[in-house]
């Protein structure tokens, strides 16, 4: 995939979200530079991300995603650990939900919206994996990686929500039997419903 094609591919994916000036700015960017200013969300978008995270891991008799700080974790992780393709695919997913009026939907409708998103993401993931395989064989893979399609929004959202929650102090302690120093390795027989260990 050459650079011009890659850019037009991104703009197709994002629909109307990339304006002509943005595309021009991207065109002027050096090939290996990162996006100036990195990744940010508006306060509306932050609310939406928090709502989705809480639907994935809701508060029950144990804390939910919001209580343990998952929304801020997600934003920090996207800023620090992901490149432009994921920044764009994530924002595109957020904007898609914004345009669908997600925050004003009932909880039942929100759940239904996310179920549909999950089903669509399955298909997107197949294409993404093919792309990754091709990249693995390419000499120019660092460049391709930066131009490639980002992981779909739902996949990023779900992975970072689970990672943020199950490795947070409160989420981990509430979900698992935390044993930092097991001291031995041995077979045990699980009782019905017994929690897993975390180390």
């Amino acid at each position: 995939m050459n650079r011009r094609n890659a850019l037009s591919h991104i703009s197709l994916l994002l629909g109307s979200t990339l304006s002509a000036p943005t595309l021009l700015a991207m065109d002027r960017r050096g090939r290996h530079q990162r996006v100036p200013g990195g990744f940010t969300l508006t306060s509306d978008q932050r609310s939406l991300v928090a709502t989705v995270a809480e639907l994935i891991i809701p508060k029950t008799d144990t804390p939910g995603a919001i209580e343990v700080g998952v929304p801020a974790f997600i934003e920090m992780m996207l800023q620090d650990c992901y490149l432009q393709p994921e920044h764009q695919s994530f924002v595109a997913g957020v904007e898609q939900l914004q345009q669908a009026g997600f925050l004003s939907q009932s909880t039942a409708d929100q759940t239904e919206t996310l179920r549909r998103l999950e089903a669509e993401t399955k298909e997107l993931m197949k294409a993404y994996q093919v792309q990754q395989t091709k990249m693995g064989d390419n000499e120019d893979k660092e460049l391709m990686k930066k131009q490639a399609t980002g992981l779909p929004f739902w996949r990023l959202m779900k992975e970072l929500t689970l990672l943020g929650y199950f490795t947070s102090e409160a989420g981990l302690q509430a979900s698992f039997n935390y044993v930092p120093i097991p001291g031995k390795y041995e077979l045990i027989k699980l009782k019905p419903g017994q929690k897993n260990y975390a180390y």
Binding site: P58, T111, R155, L162, G193, K195
Partner: peptide, 16 residues
């Protein structure tokens, strides 16, 4: 991460 589902019962399932 790769399996379907989210919400209260999914959360409970992940603890096992």
């Amino acid at each position: 991460v790769a399996m379907d589902g989210f919400g209260a019962s999914f959360k409970q399932q992940m603890t096992q």
